[in-house]
Design a protein around this nucleic acid. Sequence first.
DNA 1: AACAGCTTCAACCGCTGTCTT
DNA 2: GAAGACAGCGGTTGAAGCTGT
Length: 284
Amino acid sequence: MGRAPCCEKLGLKKGPWTPEEDQILINYINTNGHNNWRALPKQAGLLRCGKSCRLRWINYLRPDIKRGNFTNEEEETILKLHEMLGNRWSAIAARLPGRTDNEIKNVWHTHLKKRLPPQENNNIKSTKKPRPKQKKKLEITKKSNKTSSKQKQEKEEEEPIKIGDRTMMSPNTQCSSSSSINNTTNNNNNNDGVSMNNSSGESINNDDDGNKDDNLALDEEFWSEVLSSDNSYDEDARKFEDIEFGDLDLFHFPLLSSSASSVACDGMDSWYDFCTKSLELPQL
DNA sequence: AACAGCTTCAACCGCTGTCTT
DNA sequence: GAAGACAGCGGTTGAAGCTGT
């Protein structure tokens, strides 16, 4: 698998986005969609790499982004989901309409992590294998024109960005990030992969380091196998019923079995319920 | 007012997974 | 099956803003 040579070309801009760049990106995606992030900046006339455009759109410009403080309910949800899923921010974000994985990650590290007892904090490990220390980039010309995030937020609240004939605001009225992307663009945006795939194809994996000992030993392969990206739950549900979890066959538990069968109908909601119930299992 | 330390969060980096050729 | 291309993810960074002294 080759690596994407991102931002290798000289002359590509880095750092904070200007309002002009935002507007260009918004306008372009509004009219053309984002079928190909790599080609997008060139076609849109942006001196950015596709990755940067994608990130900017997903984390900031997407119209269904909910800005502002997290509610208590949202924070509780994050805590619960993090307990179940570990640092799978995108999976957690899929349960929180209008919130991005980046935002949730930030909130976790700045607020929620502190709420945990120290012992639990120590148990939190990466869901991935440890990576070698990142090399420091030579020179980054950052923040040359960065506006404060709060200022930006206030500005946006005052002056919602217009996308074509639509105004980027009121995320609460939008659907969750898992389904709203198609609302954001024209009909030629059919294969919008971003959030559709993000949610429907998201593998909900138990934290293979931190939670495994305390919770059910759910095999990662099981999750990725069941939660295939095409939402073919009927097919998957059949597979699901044949799966054993190592020594523990969850489907011998009536509670979980019923949850599991409902998965075929309800998608992520059922997975959430399923996970929630799974955590209750030791008390049964 | 000035400074230092802390907090926040947008953006970057590098890796992995998936799809295509 | 191998390799390339791309999207997506999670970890990390660092400047701006905030707070305390």
